[in-house]
């Protein structure tokens, strides 16, 4: 029963990530795309954690950890580039 619930949530997350990709494709400004990619990153982290439970292979949790940190630094660099024109 619990596996069915988790599969339903994973499939829903994938479908709504596709909707967010639609917004990232057709966003009028560049900041819309930043927001949409942020949402997709969060969804990927949730999918990774649920797969770690379904597949009973818990090293995916470390992968999700690194993914969160990398997405944060990436978003920070994009915003600094947009505000100041250079990163370093």
């Amino acid at each position: 029963m619990i596996n069915t619930v988790l599969y339903i949530i994973v499939i829903g997350q994938i479908l709504f990530s596709l909707l967010a990709i639609l917004r990232a494709y057709s966003g009028p400004t560049v900041l819309d795309r930043v927001v949409a990619m942020n949402v997709i990153t969060t969804n990927v982290v949730i999918i990774l954690l649920i797969f770690a439970f379904i597949d009973n292979s818990y090293y995916y949790i470390d992968v999700a950890f690194v993914f969160v940190l990398g997405s944060f630094i990436g978003t920070l660099c994009i915003l600094k580039l947009l505000r100041e024109g250079h990163i370093i």
Partner: peptide
Amino acid sequence: FFFLVVGVLGL
């Protein structure tokens, strides 16, 4: 899951 769906619909 409900709150995540509502967030994407807002997006």
